[in-house]
């Protein structure tokens, strides 16, 4: 559904030296798929996601969605930032309704707002302002805000990165459920190997300087994913080895937790 062909993006740092954020990256994302991007800091994960969103343009190469070139942002590609970026002057329901308002379909579709509040598990908070919410709740709002447009693909840039371990596991389950219920194609950037295995169909491992996709691991665990089962542990070991080759140093390769 999304095709990324030979995409490169170069930035210039403050000294004027070129940084190859992405070098000749090619990738295909299939309809309904859950793909994770994982890799060391600075390997171009955010850059790639922004290119898919249309928030940024490649220096060379092309991106397509359903055969059409991606040139600018659109409501069919929802984006969730690491920091939820909710509008502080809008309540939860108003934040979620932005997409409908921006597209002038709020009047006909406002019944969707409570539906999506329910989908992300925020019943009872529709009138709260963002500063009255926890970090995890803010991310729920940001996800609902993107989903209400029924996007073809949902792009998540480390949405759980700033959350504590408990909230993160809770939200991982929410994301899994949402995906089951809506069937949306999802691309997730993460630092957390377990999170990638738990959620994804495929995991793209990236390397830095120049930013490239090094390897794609298929997650073939069809039953309920259990972090302590052998197939899960095996995949974790494989992914960590690849990441290790990619230059990521992990605190505890056996346990596979946080990158340092």
């Amino acid at each position: 559904m999304i095709e990324i062909r030979n995409v490169s993006r170069i930035y210039y740092d403050t000294a004027g030296l070129p940084v190859e954020a992405l070098q000749a990256v090619s990738l295909e994302i299939r309809e309904g798929e859950f793909l994770s991007l994982i890799g060391p800091s600075g390997c171009g994960k955010t850059t790639l996601l922004r290119l898919i969103a249309g928030l940024d343009l490649p220096r060379s190469g092309e991106l397509f969605i359903e055969g059409r070139a991606i040139e600018k942002p659109s409501h069919e590609r929802g984006y969730v930032f690491q920091q939820a970026a909710l509008f502080p002057w809008k309540t939860v329901e108003e934040n979620i309704a932005i997409g409908l308002k921006a597209r002038h379909i709020y009047k006909e579709k406002k019944g969707l707002v409570p539906e999506y509040i329910h989908l992300v598990g925020l019943d009872g908070f529709s009138k709260s302002y963002p500063h009255e919410l926890s970090g995890g709740m803010m991310q729920r709002v940001a996800i609902a805000r993107a989903l209400i447009n029924k996007p073809k693909v949902l792009l998540l840039d480390e949405p759980l990165g700033a959350l504590d371990a408990f909230t993160r596991i809770e939200l991982q389950d929410t994301i899994r459920r949402i995906r089951r219920e809506t069937g949306t194609t999802i691309v997730l950037v993460t630092h957390d190997v377990d999170e990638a295995i738990y959620l994804s169909d495929r995991i793209a491992i990236m390397t830095a300087r120049p930013g490239k996709i090094n390897e794609i691991i298929k997650v073939e665990i069809n039953s309920e994913r259990d972090r302590n089962r052998d197939d899960f542990i095996g995949l974790r070991r494989r992914a960590l080895e690849k990441l290790h080759l990619a230059g990521v140093v992990y605190a505890n390769v056996q346990g596979g937790g946080e990158a340092i």
Binding site: A53, L55, G78, A85, W89, I98, A102
Partner: peptide, 28 residues
């Protein structure tokens, strides 16, 4: 914040929306 504009554009906002629903409320 730039993120407010970017988020709005991925939600389908045009320039007019960015001005009246993002920039001006932010300036209140």
């Amino acid at each position: 914040p730039k993120a407010y504009f970017e988020v709005s554009r991925t939600l389908g906002a045009n320039d007019r929306f960015l001005l009246f629903h993002v920039a001006i409320p932010n300036a209140v």
